[in-house]
Simulated scan of single mutants.
Amino acid sequence: MQAIHQFLAGFTVGDAISNESVVLQKIFASWGMEANIFCETFRTLARLRDMVKDVKTACSIVKPDDIAILHLSIGSDVNDIFAGLRCRKAIIYHNITPPHYFGFFNPNVASLLARGIEQTKEMSTLQAICMADSRYNAEELEKYGYKNVQVLPLILNFDLWKNINTRYMKKLKDGMVNVIFVGRIVPNKKIEDVILAFHYFQKWVKPNSRLILAGSYAGMERYFYYLQAGIKKLGTENVIFTGMIPQDQLNACYAASSVFLCMSEHEGFCIPLLESMFHSVPVMAYSAAAVPETLDDSGIIFTRKDFSRIAEMIGILYDDANLHNVIVKSQTARLQKFKERNIESELRMFLSPLMQ
């Protein structure tokens, strides 16, 4: 029996690529395939290690007629192991963040990202089916010499977004205006710009307001302390860093929020935009990388970081019920368009040349 194996640089809770690999594993099993996930043990969350196999065992498990799929997002020994396998291959490119964002805050991560870019360039000569989860990402692969790159959006489990921790939500629904950003606390997401825009909003538009920054800062402590110092210098109040929280609490954060504000400068897809749509939270986002593609004419996109005007727009969006409804309606239509796309069928079509 032919098998489809997935290769990841890391496997943990709350990670978009890890979540997608689990969804894909179930899909491949439904196709009658053996479906394994390989990762380095030390980069797999301890309590999830029974879900994956140590990548060091891959050479003894993967057969020539099997399909190996690499989720490519950072430099890793996994990439080299995948490249050396003697089997049928496919790559799903999730984008590699430019290393310069991390040079000061975490040189080790910057080094891994730089290595990932070099590995990506080297693998352009592999005989592999190439997919990317946005047109933006596909064009990046094409610049590295990849041919016939297909766009396959992230395969999402919408059921994860349904369960809301009502107790947690009630704590946040206390009369304050909640502005939210969701994502790892990392430099390319420009959290400092979110904070500065919120500072203007709180000082000049809605003093009784709160900023919720939901995401892990593990490994980015220097950046986290930099942000904390900036908040103290500005004198901004009610800024909450949730850290990594359970999905039902994250859903509660969305449900309690009035606006999602994204100032990120580099996104290969940006799932929180779709999560905001799911929870009917109006999105305001800086036009960068794959963000406009993911929003697809919904939400509010701006091309300049004029912080006072952004703050004013957040206030208008909060106060103007008609504008709020128009934006949410456009986002609901965008989300429905995404849901209606038969991504599993597209995946099977892309992989069909490799399947027996």
Rank of each mutant, 00 (worst) to 15 (best):
L8K: 00
I27R: 09
L250S: 04
T41C: 10
A16D: 02
Y200P: 09
P272I: 04
G219W: 12
K53M: 10
S280N: 14
S18K: 05
S276T: 02
K232V: 05
A285T: 08
Y318G: 03
L72M: 05
F241W: 08
Q249R: 09
M176Q: 14
R309M: 13
I185M: 07
V182H: 00
F241T: 08
L141P: 03
F104K: 05
I4L: 11
I300R: 00
M220G: 05
W31N: 07
N238G: 15
L274S: 00
I74K: 04
W204K: 15
I343V: 07
D159R: 07
D174C: 11
K162Q: 12
I316P: 08
G10E: 15
G32S: 05
V177G: 08
E275Y: 03
N325W: 11
T97K: 02
V281C: 12
L211F: 07
F338Q: 08
E140R: 05
A3R: 05
I164G: 12
P98G: 01
G215A: 06
R88Y: 03
Q6W: 06
I67Q: 01
L45H: 15
E34P: 01
K329V: 06
I310E: 00
A214Q: 03
A83D: 12
I67D: 02
T120L: 14
Y217T: 00
L172A: 09
K232G: 05
N188L: 10
S280V: 10
L70Q: 04
S209A: 06
Q2A: 06
A132T: 07
N188E: 13
Q228R: 14
A83I: 12
I67A: 00
I316A: 02
A333C: 12
I37M: 10
A321K: 14
M1Q: 11
L354N: 01
P64I: 07
K190M: 15
S60F: 11
T41A: 13
G32R: 06
E118M: 14
D248K: 12
E118I: 15
C130K: 02
G103V: 13
N79W: 02
S124E: 10
G32E: 01
I191M: 04
M1R: 14
E267L: 07
D54E: 14
Y101D: 01
D159E: 13
C59M: 15
P64G: 13
R222D: 11
I301D: 00
V205N: 09
M123Y: 05
G215Q: 02
G103H: 14
K162Y: 09
P246T: 11
F307Y: 14
Y318I: 13
A9M: 04
P99Y: 14
Y223Q: 05
T166R: 13
N36E: 14
D320M: 05
L211V: 11
A285Y: 05
M220R: 10
S345V: 01
V328H: 01
L172D: 01
F269A: 00
M131H: 00
G14F: 00
W161L: 10
K190S: 10
Y318C: 12
S134M: 07
C87I: 08
L160A: 13
T303W: 12
T44F: 10
L152T: 06
L48A: 14
V179D: 08
I180P: 01
A90C: 12
F158T: 05
N165K: 10
